[in-house]
Amino acid sequence: MVRTPEELDLMRISGKLLASVFDTLDQEDLTGLSTMQINDLVDRFITNDLQARPASKGQYDYAYVLNCSVNNVVCHGKPSDSAVLRSGDIVNLDVTLEKNGFIADSSKTYVIGEVHARAHRLVRAAEGAMWSGIKQVRLGATLGDVGYAIQRFARKQGYAAVREYCGHGIGREMHEEPQVLNYGQARPGFDAPRGHGVHRRADGQ
Rank of each mutant, 00 (worst) to 15 (best):
E98W: 07
H168Q: 02
E114A: 04
M36I: 09
N100K: 09
K57Y: 08
Y148M: 05
Y148S: 11
L41Q: 10
Y62I: 14
A129G: 02
V111M: 01
I150N: 00
H168G: 04
G158Q: 08
F153R: 04
T96P: 04
A117F: 11
M36F: 07
I46W: 09
K57R: 13
S132H: 07
I112Q: 00
L66W: 08
D94I: 10
K156W: 11
V74Q: 09
A55N: 03
A63G: 06
R86Y: 09
D94G: 14
P79H: 03
G158V: 05
F153Q: 13
D94F: 13
S56C: 11
D105S: 15
L93K: 08
R44I: 10
V146G: 00
G144W: 00
Y110R: 02
Y64F: 09
V162C: 14
Y159R: 08
D81M: 08
V74N: 12
L97M: 11
T96M: 14
M36Y: 10
T35H: 03
N48W: 08
T142Q: 03
K108E: 09
P79M: 06
V162W: 04
I170T: 02
A52G: 10
Y148T: 12
R86H: 07
H76Y: 10
G128P: 05
A129D: 01
A117E: 11
D94M: 06
V42M: 03
C75Q: 15
